[in-house]
Design a protein around this nucleic acid. Structure first.
Lengths: 168, 168
DNA sequence: TAAGATACGTCAGTCTTGTTGACATTCCAA
DNA sequence: TTGGAATGTCAACAAGACTGACGTATCTTA
């Protein structure tokens, strides 16, 4: 696992030891807690949870997206997403428009109120990310992104890439 | 750190734009799904969930840890952890020994059966991590770890560091 | 030694968020 | 035009988190 009968020095592969991999796993675990902590704190005061945050984020990112598309991005069942969407729509944060081409589809948009909350949540999350980025510099950030992308399932990477394009 | 009113071009700060930060947020989201997918698949066939996996992981990592310590690592309530521990102990995966110094404490250990399951779960999780690491190389991995560490809350970083030391 | 603090376990109840199952509507193609 | 597929909704349930209250054993300290 560490070497491989080639001329490669075993030193260069030390980052692939079980011990290093375990540390990476633990880093993911602890960091993800920090990653969600700030929005969670804001949401705790409302009747919303993390699921609402995720919906707001991706609707904001792809205005007019259909329920089905959102479903496959979030990786939950339509029934689960529906509960979240219903409350967001009832509260006037999200607007659901019947499709012009295909009337079975619903296209989702954030209302002005929805935009305000999305902004508040993502500001909090970006603040932490920004200060982490700033403290380690662009080279580390590039590595960070590379590893995360390599960890994704193919389906997720597809979604991720297609979101990336829109912003580029 | 990066710029600072010096002659640094604004190009060098492009990694701190809201757009780049959003991509980082999405990368975390999608990657975390991949991160938990493999163990989740294994656990789906049993009566256990992700919470059991986390307990097994950290008990394996710190044999003899107390309930209280595990509590603060996992960041859940004792009632929540207790449900998980009870089933693991009943099923003979975890052993709980009364403390020698302080008899109020319970020290937790994996049994042989517990070690087998922990190994199975962490193998699956490490496989994905290893292939990601290998595909991007050690420099990227270093950046990955740096960003994650910078994202943690101080409490979590404390736990993380103390686990690191044991393995070093 | 008595009083308070600490560590752990448990019961009961609630909330969020995931699940399946059943069903209505709409579209499309045989 | 009719049956199957796709889209979305409603209802019921389960896992896993939470709070609050309480009990017991043990330790520490006044």
């Amino acid at each position: 696992m560490v070497d491989s009968a080639s001329g490669q020095s075993s030193q260069a592969l030390l980052f692939l030891t079980d011990e290093q991999l375990r540390k990476g796993i633990e880093a993911m675990f602890f960091a993800y807690r920090g990653f969600t902590a700030d929005p969670d704190r804001i949401l705790a005061d409302m009747e919303y949870g993390r699921a609402h945050h995720r919906a707001l984020h991706f609707i904001h990112r792809s205005p007019g997206t259909t329920v089905n598309n959102l479903l496959s991005i979030l990786g939950v069942t339509k029934q689960s997403l529906n509960r979240v969407l219903r409350s967001l729509i009832e509260d006037g944060l999200v607007e659901s428009r019947v499709g012009k081409q295909d009337k079975r589809e619903r296209h989702l948009y954030l209302t002005d109120t929805g935009l305000v909350l999305e902004r508040q949540l993502s500001d909090a999350q970006r603040d932490r990310m920004r200060s982490a980025y700033r403290s380690v510099g662009p080279a580390a950030v590039q590595g960070f992104r590379q590893v995360l992308e390599a960890m994704m399932d193919d389906d997720m990477r597809r979604h991720y890439e297609s979101l990336k394009d829109k912003g580029a």
